[in-house]
Design a protein around this nucleic acid. Structure first.
Length: 640
RNA sequence: GCCGAUAUAGCUCAGUCUGGUAGAGCAGCUGAUUUGUAAUCAGCUGGUCGGCGGUUCGAAUCCGUCUAUCGGCUCCA
């Protein structure tokens, strides 16, 4: 007998050789039917693998991410089977499941290309194969046999993957006519896959290496029920409607111009209003938290960035240095604000008594992002960071770090993001050459982030290899209204720049010490943050951020003067808006201003003029009846 | 930067395959209408068909190149 422990702490006894499926079945048939795979002693396995020893077990169904990924991984194999049937000689690279579906990197046979036009045919073939309810059969194979199989098949990519695998750990999975090198696990049979949608096609470098050959990546998603595919497609539709590039144009928030240059956004008046409100909001928060606002120029001598290390690390990817009439003099557009702030710290000798010093700046920086990377407002070449640098003593780091995290959480919540998590981004231990600074400093910095997060009970995940080149980071992520996760701002502890700039302070011991720097930007950049805010709200901004909070719609021209009068009254209460005095029907004015996502529409005609009121309509929610101007002001305040 | 696609009026798009100097709806302008809760009616204006070069008697249409955009990849201080 073996002891099986469950996540709720229960322990039950089973015969050795019992499978996860049988164990689930002993709990409830319903559960067993839904189990796709299981995590046994921390390892993801097939539900039908016999267990020989005591184990902890977690079942995976469609309801959890592990189950979904098992399902999608199996769908990737199903797609491979379909592709092999349709394109004989096709070669397969890497075909995993991800957070949101699956993909397979393939090399179509010489002379053929696959495009999204072929998706319907591939989907149909996949469904046809799915209906055969073929079992996913696991088989342990020797390395020699595995190599022989793929040599025979002529698939050099699988052979390359095999090189890194050890004999004795290699398994094949076969369903129907298709056999793949795979660690598993898989769902029991293809019949569970009821709905399939291929979503994307594009190039992908073999093993993610730019110097390797490009394969064709075909991505898709699948579901156990057709209804779920429908819901997914509806969500995609909604995401398209909310695309910030589309709304940015429609709501006249920002624009780009081929003549000005790619990736250089220009904020139109309404976008600028929104942006200014975000800036002022944060400025007030920061001033209350002891930050001091500073201002620095947009360029600096190349030498500044040689000192900071940015030139060495990113010189190639920057806008190239600006020459002046003087020989050998070069300036750079600033890619970061920190070097300027370091120099400001050195304005005069600093005492421990004045630390921490917190310099904040909405600093516009320029980076030459790769052409293929530019994307609306979220990836641009000129953007404004809500940047600040805190110079403090080593003892103050943890306290400052915690205060920063608090401010970030508060700010994001106030703007309407409730689901905030953080990622602790540490070095990749495999590639130490990518980072500058001493081993010792890195260790201290990484540990202080980990400790601080523990202390404030922040919901975190840890990612290796995601650190900045000069220090570890804490990256903030929010989940938007459509459930998508976005990365926003960061907090970074940096022992490096203070050293490079030889920053000092005089301690209580009258000796010189080196301060520590904390970089932080809650929004990251105003551009990126705004793009996320647009998609999160679908253009229906929180009332306090809306560029126009109301529109007054006179029933006819006769009421234009009264409308202007109401607008002026509201302005005295700091409520901003417009009068739509176009010669149009009221229905038309309502439609147009609803589409502009204006929060309140105030309709005025004969009755309102007589009573001195306004008929209030809430965006997306229809008629709220007539109110006096004072009542509306109170109503407005309530909703603010 | 790499792979693939796209670029026609302010916006959304047809016309491109099968070369014969452009078309719709909305927006804009003018006029009529003076409107009560998501598009009033009529008329008019508007395009070196992304730029440059080539093939051709003739190019929005075919070819090359550059720019920009889109979907991926790589990157993201």
């Amino acid at each position: 007998m073996i002891n099986i422990s469950f996540p709720d702490g229960n322990v039950r006894q089973y015969e050795a050789g019992t499978t996860a499926f049988e164990i689930a079945n002993s709990i409830s048939e319903g559960l067993a039917r839904n189990v796709f795979s299981a995590t046994v002693n921390g390892t993801l396995t097939d539900r039908d693998l016999p267990l020989q020893e005591d184990a902890t077990i977690v079942f995976h169904t469609w309801r959890d991410q592990g189950g979904k990924e098992t399902f999608w991984h199996s769908t990737a194999h199903l797609m491979a089977e379909a592709l092999e049937a349709m394109y004989p000689g096709i070669k397969f690279g890497y075909g995993p499941a991800g957070r949101d579906g699956f993909f397979y990197d393939v090399e179509p046979p010489e002379g053929t290309t696959i495009s999204s036009d072929d998706f319907p045919a591939i989907e149909a073939k996949m469904l046809e194969l799915a209906r055969q309810k073929n079992e996913y059969v696991r088989k342990e194979v020797s390395k020699a046999d595995a190599i022989a199989y793929f040599k025979e098949k002529g698939d050099e990519y699988k052979l390359e993957l095999l090189e890194d695998l050890e004999d004795g750990t290699i398994t094949f999975y076969t369903q129907g006519e298709f056999t793949d090198l795979c660690r598993g696990p898989h769902i029991p049979n293809t019949g569970l896959i009821k709905a399939i949608k291929l979503t994307k096609i594009g190039g992908a470098f073999w093993r993610g290496d730019e110097s390797n050959k490009q394969l064709t990546r075909i991505s898709g998603i699948s579901f156990p029920k057709a209804k779920e595919l429908k819901e997914y497609l509806a969500m995609i539709e909604e995401a398209k409607k909310r695309d910030h590039r589309k709304l940015g144009k429609e709501l006249e928030l920002f624009m780009f111009s081929e003549k000005v240059g790619a990736g250089l956004p220009m904020w139109l008046p309404k976008g600028t209003q929104l942006r200014e409100r975000l800036v002022n909001f944060l400025k007030v928060k920061q001033e209350n938290a002891g930050y001091q606002q500073v201002t620095t120029p947009h360029i600096g001598k190349k030498d500044l960035y040689v000192t900071s290390g940015h030139w060495d690390k990113y010189g190639e990817d920057s806008f190239q240095p600006i020459k002046t009439p003087r020989v050998d003099e070069e300036f750079m557009l600033k890619p970061m604000n920190c070097p300027h702030h370091c120099e400001m710290y050195k304005f005069r000798p600093r005492s421990y008594r004045e630390l921490p010093i917190r310099f904040a700046e909405f600093g516009t920086v320029y980076r030459y992002e790769q052409t293929g990377e530019l994307h609306g407002l979220s990836r641009v070449r000129g953007f404004t960071q809500d940047d600040a640098h805190i110079f403090c003593t080593p003892e103050q780091v943890k306290g400052e770090f915690i205060a920063v995290v608090d401010i970030v959480k508060e700010v994001l919540n106030l703007i309407g993001f409730d689901d905030v998590t953080a990622q602790i981004s540490l070095r990749d231990p495999q590639t130490p050459e990518k980072y500058i600074g001493s081993e010792e400093n890195w260790k201290i910095a990484e540990q202080s982030i980990i400790d601080a997060c523990k202390e404030i009970d922040m919901n975190t995940v840890t990612a290796f290899g995601e650190a900045a080149f000069y220090g570890p980071k804490l990256d903030f992520m929010v989940r938007d209204a459509l459930g998508r996760q976005w990365q926003l701002g960061t907090v970074q502890v940096d022992y490096n720049l203070p050293e490079r700039f030889e920053l000092e302070y005089i301690g209580s011991d009258n000796a010189t010490h080196r301060p520590v720097m904390i970089h932080r930007a809650p929004f990251g950049s105003l551009e990126r943050f705004t793009s996320i805010l647009i998609e999160h709200t679908g253009g229906k901004f929180p009332l306090w951020l809306a560029p126009e909070q109301f529109a007054i719609l006179p029933i006819s021209e006769k009421f234009n003067d009264y409308s202007t009068n109401v607008m002026q009254q509201l302005a005295t209460h700091d409520i901003r808006g417009i009068v739509d005095d176009r010669n149009e029907t009221i229905g038309r004015k309502i439609r147009d201003n609803e589409l502009k996502r204006i929060p309140f529409l105030l309709i005025v005609g004969e009755k309102e003029v007589e009573s001195g009121g306004v008929a209030v309509r809430v965006q997306g929610d229809g008629d709220k009846g007539t109110m006096s101007v004072e009542e509306f002001v109170a109503f407005f305040r309530e909703q603010l």
